[in-house]
Design a binder for these strands. Sequence first.
DNA 1: CTGAAAGCGCTTACAG
DNA 2: CTGAAAGCGCTTACAG
Lengths: 340, 340
Amino acid sequence: MTLELPRRTAPTLEAVAAAAGVSRSTVSRVVNGSSHVSPDVIDAVNAAIESLNYIPNRAARSLANRQTMAIALVVPEDTNRFFGDPFFAEIVQGITQGLEDSDYVLNLQLASPSSPSEKTIRYLLGGNVDGAIVVSHHSGDDFFTTLDATIPVVFGGRPYHPELHRNNYVDVDNAAGAAMGTQYLIDLGRQRIGTIAGPPNMQAAIDRAEGWGAAMRESGHPADLVEYGDFTMASGAAAMRALLDREPNLDAVFVASDLMATGAITVLRDRGKTVPADVAVVGFDDSSAATSGEIALTTVHQPSREMGAEMARMLLALLRNEPTERERVMPTRMVVRTSA
Amino acid sequence: MTLELPRRTAPTLEAVAAAAGVSRSTVSRVVNGSSHVSPDVIDAVNAAIESLNYIPNRAARSLANRQTMAIALVVPEDTNRFFGDPFFAEIVQGITQGLEDSDYVLNLQLASPSSPSEKTIRYLLGGNVDGAIVVSHHSGDDFFTTLDATIPVVFGGRPYHPELHRNNYVDVDNAAGAAMGTQYLIDLGRQRIGTIAGPPNMQAAIDRAEGWGAAMRESGHPADLVEYGDFTMASGAAAMRALLDREPNLDAVFVASDLMATGAITVLRDRGKTVPADVAVVGFDDSSAATSGEIALTTVHQPSREMGAEMARMLLALLRNEPTERERVMPTRMVVRTSA
DNA sequence: CTGAAAGCGCTTACAG
DNA sequence: CTGAAAGCGCTTACAG
């Protein structure tokens, strides 16, 4: 049995007003930093706030001014994917950092990868948050792409079927980045270059696969060796096996994420292939997964943390009705280590 | 420049009442599933809700009934630690699962490891959540241990200095678990057994170090080989180096977390030691880190997911004023793989 | 610069 | 079973 603690009931604006000998309006003004309050009144009110330990009730405030000062970070991925890929950690860090100087708090909502649950929908639509950042959007999820009819939304990564909706997003040029990574392998003189693509229901995955294909075709190579993963290590391993079974002479592979590349490398070594001598591997992300394995990955770097910060900045601008570009495309670059 | 979308203003209870031809009270009753409403009225109201796409405004509801239907998961760790250790992923999964059938949403708050920020404090005290689960508590943080004077709190892991406060928590018997892991090494006939302990400002770390010490002393071994890490892989590696420098003949080590054990093993191999032949390693957690390295860890299993679910259950009971035990200690067990 | 008053969208005794 | 009314704790024109 637990001890029943008498829960303290929090002091209200009213109490502060009484203590400071002013009206509630005035207390509200100083709490919200409004100008046009005389210095001594400000001091008196602050003293009362201090001594009563007053903290404004957020529900009341929200109801009155229709702002929650909270934003949702929605990640339509299951817990394993979310926690398993360091890419997300960096995005979250960036967002947190971008929000630091603001008054907004970030509420993380793990949603279902297929379509958002009733609970998520009610949360997003029920006035719990002023805006949302959606990272890792999948096709079929029109809820999120149309959510901005209700609250401002910024996507981390161009949403699927971007032509259908005019959503705000920050992204890298995935196709160009992938082409760069592939070109690097081509320039190495590799002949049979495959790719492990991400899930075809995600725009970034599609774009990276296309970038690989474009680079291959432009240099006169066949763009036939494609296998798909879902951005997890295990799926990277499985795709690598499939690729090797189809083409034992494969001598390079462009992998759409570092985590999948790590999985692919395990398989290559199991099959007796040396990396990079027999098979060169280029990843994508340059997340901490790139350097956590035994073979440091040569990879296409995307500025994940900065992207997160940029998402926060963009959403803040929308929330404040400040002008902002609808899309922000950040640069990628090659990071050469040992896998290629 | 972004396109200014005219944001739809959500329908209110009032609108539903009008549409259904009943009073607001009645709509409120059916929304909240109160009994004593006639079937046809229920149908009429539901039809109106459906057609208007009504979602109750949470701020208004909170203000009126003093419930937010939200609970905070507070983790006083930086993003790297939180995302880096699969232990947290499992706890989160457990909590999420334990909350699934309830109407509560979970809001994750990453706090500072030292002391909570002003933002976190205001969040927790400003009526944003009905209760909190605090995982990974450190010493010096009396804010969290006294937070239950304001809202119900459940700790994941016995808080530091539990004798000072009577907090609710779910935990394993860390000392017993560590003793079991150490005893396993002793039974293997190992002679020089060190330990890599967790940070001494965390209760679980202290308890595990004590469990190791107790098992050592009881079997007549000196309990002198202790080095401390902070539960990260890198710190496990550093501690292993220190241990080896102090005692080159060490032939076993009990490590207070799987992640640190993984780091320790890298060092052992770098120094030319075979695991388990030269040095046997026993970890703690049995998280996914135990099997992600090249040498599968023999480890002390703690039921992280179930613990998370239990935290949720306990908090829900507190929230509903149902009786519940103040502490729940769950069982550990040895999982023997290859590292020892 | 300051206060009285209305209102935000709900819930909840209180009557009936 | 149902409704009128008060109230939750703030903010915000509106006066002055």
